[in-house]
Design a protein around this nucleic acid. Sequence first.
DNA 1: GTCATTTAATTGATATATCAATTTTTGATA
DNA 2: TATCAAAAATTGATATATCAATTAAATGAC
Lengths: 147, 147
Amino acid sequence: MFISDQELKDVVFFSMDQSMRRLRNYSNQAFHEAGFDLTVDQWLVLKRVYDAQEQVSQTEIAEMLSKDGASLTRILDILVKKELLFRKMNETDRRKFDLLMTPKGTEYIQRLIPLVISIREKALNNVSDAEIIVLRTILEKIKTNLR
Amino acid sequence: MFISDQELKDVVFFSMDQSMRRLRNYSNQAFHEAGFDLTVDQWLVLKRVYDAQEQVSQTEIAEMLSKDGASLTRILDILVKKELLFRKMNETDRRKFDLLMTPKGTEYIQRLIPLVISIREKALNNVSDAEIIVLRTILEKIKTNLR
DNA sequence: GTCATTTAATTGATATATCAATTTTTGATA
DNA sequence: TATCAAAAATTGATATATCAATTAAATGAC
């Protein structure tokens, strides 16, 4: 059973794409089944706002998540509509909005954290800490190579 | 400098998502700069049709790529509009279309293959064969865990 | 202090993913 | 054979990513 060097490299990216999609779908479904009307990307944004102790702007959140400003605007629109956070005009720079959690948003976060952890645990079942470190090293190399 | 087990697991998925997005963006840009009006996903579909020696249906291509039938329909619409392939009604099952390359599509494939290989080589620069095998093993575990 | 440049956010257009609903055709069964 | 369920493809709706263009506000150069 042979697999060429090129095929191996091809397959590995395909496999990475599949893994990420599966994780996303699994998570979205788990959120839904747990009664949360939230996607993974919405979760990621909400969590960053929650974790930011100080006032955060949209640009700052976008940078943390490597997301485009346009994507962020739209995700925030949804989160605002769901009353999980809100925008408040920055006091000193009127181009900016400070992003702030609502009580409902905070409650969502706190109730979702255990679920998110359990999903990650499930995804990485049978993967050793050493393997995770190798994985992370490889991913950093790939990102550097494509910079 | 400590990083908890949970953070490590969190970061690794974030990093994987970033790596895949960077590869996609890098590839799309490289295609564009090489004068090809084609996205990576369009490339993937076109390449599978090219590689299929026999007649292939949309469902078969969708399965090969783990893509939704709806996504495939839309990508094919674009490829047909670009005259890189065409649909031909299946002789024995009128629900199906056989997907066939046009000369232009074949030429695109042949000219793009070296570029695609060079992108993969660049992405995996400094990543050893052993690491790639570990990576693949981990990804398979993740996919299995989330089935 | 005015004017040009930069920055923050938004909006529009296009590509893709996902799910649901629909249409057409096939195949199986009663 | 008439019917009914399954399969193939399409279409619509929504979420996200990316790029381009736009608006409003801040900053920097002179």
